[in-house]
Simulated assay, not measured.
Amino acid sequence: MQLNDKIYIAGHRGMVGGAIKRKLEKDGFSNLIYHNSSSLDLRNQQQVDSFFEEERPAYVFLAAAKVGGIVANNTFRADFIYENLMIEANIIHAAYKHNVSKLMFLGSSCIYPKMAPQPLKEEYLLTGTLEYTNEPYAIAKIAGIKLCEAYRDQYGCNFISVMPTNLYGIGDNYHPQNSHVLPALIRRIHEAKENNIPEVTIWGTGTPRREFLYSEDLADACVFLMQTYNEKALINVGVGEDVSIKELAHMVKAVVGYNGGFVFDSSKPDGTPRKLMDVNKLSSLGWKHVTSLNRGIELAYEDFLKKELIRQ
């Protein structure tokens, strides 16, 4: 990518797309294009095709998606598979049709089988059964990977697929029911502190282990890969380290300054026992994250507090 190339960021208002936008602006890229969902419905093929025909972007970051935590994924199963399939199919096809130089599709670590060996290697895709609670979302993301591969195979398109681990950071969703585990913990522990609630109930046993990557680090990896990576095979983006949900809760507790305790509700689902990415492929290219989990939680909590001030 050259600094004056036209770059389309699909999903620029989300946490991932917003981080990519900030990274590109910081690096001096000046010809960025993006639309709000009110003016461009990515689920609508005709609207997407017209947008690509008019704008003719050279590069595309496909970060737009319908996302949510375990409750949202399991409750709105049809919405998650339908909307994500439509978004990625429309954008990928339009990128081919209108001669985009390169497209990056952003997936998710949930594409891997529930009981896959740890850490998760790229070649484990489609080797086993998915976690049921987010299966529709995972299938949609797998379809996006396969779309990129198929358009590369048939038409020679330089479409690449990047699989981030669990993400958090600036612009995250802190909804009490529909958010992912880390932002949900930040909100609930903060509210417990503010309201002098003596204990916080956490879904599951606290034993599942998860890996977390700060949003700004992901954006740095995405721009790095857009400049350097041109292979058909998907590539993992993560930190190569994980923590248990219980350990995570105590890290958030320390950052927030909460003095209460935790109760783990084992009647609620744990989800996949462990999700740790193998990042050797990315490391071999020369990229590594820079934000520690503890520092990232501090930055995320600062962002949450700003949102709370606006909301009030």
Score class of each variant (00 low, 15 high):
Ile7Lys: 02
Ala10Ser: 14
Ala10Thr: 10
Gly14Met: 04
Gly14Asp: 04
Met15His: 02
Ile20Asp: 02
Ile20Pro: 03
Glu25Asp: 09
Lys26Asn: 14
Phe29Cys: 09
Phe29His: 15
Ser30Leu: 09
Leu32Lys: 06
Asn44Ala: 02
Gln47Asp: 08
Val48Trp: 01
Glu54Leu: 06
Glu54Lys: 13
Ala58Gln: 15
Val60Asn: 02
Val60Met: 03
Lys66Cys: 01
Asn73Ala: 15
Asp79Cys: 01
Glu83Phe: 00
Asn84Ser: 04
Met86Ile: 01
Ile92Glu: 10
His93Ile: 06
Ala94Pro: 01
Ala95Lys: 02
Tyr96Phe: 12
Leu103Gly: 09
Phe105Asn: 13
Phe105Asp: 02
Leu106Cys: 15
Gly107Gln: 06
Cys110Ser: 13
Ala116Phe: 09
Ala116Asn: 09
Pro117Met: 10
Thr127Pro: 03
Thr129Trp: 01
Leu130Tyr: 06
Lys141Met: 06
Ile145His: 12
Ile145Cys: 11
Leu147Gln: 14
Leu147Asn: 12
Tyr151Asn: 09
Asp153Asn: 13
Gln154Asn: 14
Gly156Thr: 06
Asn158Asp: 15
Phe159Tyr: 11
Ser161Phe: 06
Met163Val: 14
Thr165Ile: 08
Tyr168Gln: 06
Tyr168Arg: 04
Tyr168His: 11
Tyr174Met: 06
Tyr174Val: 06
Pro176Lys: 07
Pro176Ala: 09
Gln177Asn: 13
Gln177Lys: 14
Asn178Ile: 00
Ser179Pro: 03
His180Asp: 07
Pro183Arg: 08
Ala184Gln: 12
Lys193Glu: 12
Ile197Trp: 04
Thr201Phe: 12
Arg209Asn: 07
Arg210Leu: 12
Phe212Val: 08
Asp217Ile: 02
Tyr229Gly: 10
Glu231His: 13
Gly240Trp: 05
Glu241Cys: 05
Ser244Val: 06
Ser244Gly: 05
Leu248His: 05
Val252Cys: 09
Val255Gln: 09
Phe262Tyr: 14
Asp265Lys: 11
Lys268Leu: 14
Val279Ser: 03
Asn280Trp: 04
Leu282Pro: 07
Trp287Leu: 07
Lys288Cys: 09
His289Ala: 15
Ser292Cys: 06
Ile297Trp: 04
Leu299Phe: 13
Tyr301Trp: 10
Leu309His: 11
Ile310Ala: 12
Arg311Lys: 15
Gln312Ile: 10
